[in-house]
Amino acid sequence: MAVEDDIRAIVAEYAKLDVPMDEVTDTTDLFDAGMTSHSSVNLMLALEERFDFEFPDQLLRRSTFASVSAIKTNILSVLGEGTDGT
């Protein structure tokens, strides 16, 4: 499964959005879609578990978790370019 599919599955389970996932595009603002600060913690922990890493303190910013696309970019930046997450 591709990184993006994994991220979308985790967002669907942990972000507690007010909208169905099929309405969430790669650039949909997840906070605007209903994700709370506490839900973003669960999202962060689930992503760390799935991809076996820990978000460094410098990535603890709203923009890191603002969209599926942003999450993917930041995970790949930590794991290294070219990681396919499989």
Binding site: K16, T36, H38, N42, L45
Partner: peptide
């Protein structure tokens, strides 16, 4: 700020010590 107690309980059940230690 306002937080759901149920959501914290769910996080604690799901992530356990990792959740506590991170927050």
């Amino acid at each position: 700020d306002l937080v759901s107690v149920k959501e914290v309980e769910e996080s604690l059940r799901r992530f356990g010590r990792r959740y506590l230690a991170r927050i």
